Simulated scan of single mutants.
Amino acid sequence: MRQSVISDNLHRIQQRLTGTAARLVAVTKTHPVERLREAYEAGARIFGENRVQEMAAKQPELPTDVEWHLIGHLQTNKVKYIAPFVHTIQSIDSLKLLLEVERQAAKHNRVIKGLLQFHIADEETKTGLTLAEAEEILQSAEFRSLQHVRLAGVMGIATNTPNEDQLRREFRQLRGYFDKLKALYFAEDESFREISMGMSSDYELALREGSTLIRVGSAIFGSR
């Protein structure tokens, strides 16, 4: 895809975000570094990757002001590879993972942001927490002792469906989880403010339901 097309796509989405609370996460998985540079030159500053190895390989090739977000499932044994630079891990789905992020971030004297990933889709293949599981984490003594991970909100992946009513329900469910956790556990914490929902096919709906981070790949870079 020519640079002007990537640039045009980015600017169109950025324009759509004007006046909303949302920021764009450009999903760069499987795209070569040259395309990421084109997106960077067109103004993209938050890049989302699904795989640790790919993110770790691309990070040194791009400017240091890029905010790297890990948006795919993260195994605890892979945290060490991204701990030196990752800004936000959007896929926190267990206390075990949180504790490992804490351990690895401490080694680098960093604070890494995390989003609690919830299972909102009508698809078993998608991972994520239930509300009860999330509350169990937040009520634990281990969570309260964390110093190098800061939970900044929630993330969810909606069902892959053209059914707008279903998508709206799922986005509202995630927004409801955010509101409840904010009121009960983060009322005084201004940094707990992110609701990451919406992708290339459904971000318009997600924006209307209160998304603050949309994860868009193919609408910027074209299909892989």
Rank of each mutant, 00 (worst) to 15 (best):
residue 1 M to A: 13
residue 3 Q to D: 10
residue 5 V to H: 05
residue 6 I to K: 02
residue 9 N to F: 15
residue 10 L to C: 08
residue 12 R to H: 10
residue 15 Q to S: 10
residue 17 L to Y: 05
residue 18 T to D: 01
residue 20 T to N: 01
residue 20 T to D: 03
residue 21 A to I: 06
residue 22 A to K: 03
residue 23 R to G: 11
residue 23 R to L: 10
residue 24 L to F: 10
residue 25 V to L: 15
residue 27 V to Y: 01
residue 28 T to Q: 01
residue 28 T to Y: 14
residue 31 H to I: 13
residue 32 P to I: 13
residue 41 E to A: 14
residue 42 A to H: 12
residue 43 G to A: 12
residue 43 G to W: 13
residue 43 G to V: 10
residue 45 R to H: 09
residue 46 I to W: 14
residue 49 E to C: 03
residue 54 E to C: 07
residue 55 M to S: 06
residue 57 A to S: 12
residue 57 A to E: 14
residue 58 K to P: 00
residue 60 P to D: 03
residue 60 P to K: 07
residue 61 E to T: 07
residue 62 L to Y: 11
residue 68 W to E: 04
residue 68 W to H: 03
residue 69 H to T: 09
residue 70 L to C: 06
residue 71 I to C: 04
residue 72 G to S: 12
residue 74 L to I: 13
residue 79 V to D: 06
residue 82 I to H: 05
residue 84 P to R: 06
residue 86 V to A: 10
residue 88 T to E: 06
residue 89 I to L: 12
residue 91 S to P: 00
residue 92 I to G: 00
residue 94 S to A: 08
residue 94 S to Y: 11
residue 94 S to F: 13
residue 100 E to K: 14
residue 103 R to E: 13
residue 103 R to L: 09
residue 113 K to R: 14
residue 115 L to D: 07
residue 116 L to A: 11
residue 116 L to W: 05
residue 119 H to C: 11
residue 120 I to A: 10
residue 122 D to I: 09
residue 123 E to S: 12
residue 124 E to L: 12
residue 126 K to Y: 07
residue 129 L to S: 01
residue 130 T to M: 01
residue 136 E to T: 15
residue 140 S to I: 09
residue 143 F to D: 02
residue 144 R to E: 03
residue 147 Q to I: 13
residue 149 V to K: 05
residue 149 V to G: 02
residue 154 V to W: 00
residue 156 G to Q: 14
residue 158 A to G: 14
residue 161 T to L: 13
residue 161 T to H: 05
residue 164 E to A: 08
residue 165 D to K: 12
residue 170 E to S: 02
residue 171 F to A: 01
residue 174 L to T: 10
residue 176 G to C: 02
residue 176 G to E: 02
residue 180 K to N: 06
residue 181 L to M: 13
residue 182 K to G: 07
residue 184 L to Q: 13
residue 185 Y to N: 00
residue 186 F to G: 05
residue 186 F to H: 04
residue 188 E to K: 08
residue 189 D to H: 03
residue 189 D to L: 05
residue 191 S to D: 11
residue 202 D to L: 10
residue 204 E to S: 13
residue 204 E to L: 15
residue 205 L to Y: 08
residue 205 L to V: 15
residue 207 L to V: 14
residue 211 S to D: 01
residue 212 T to R: 01
residue 212 T to Q: 01
residue 213 L to M: 08
residue 214 I to H: 06
residue 217 G to D: 05
residue 217 G to W: 12
residue 219 A to F: 12
residue 219 A to V: 09
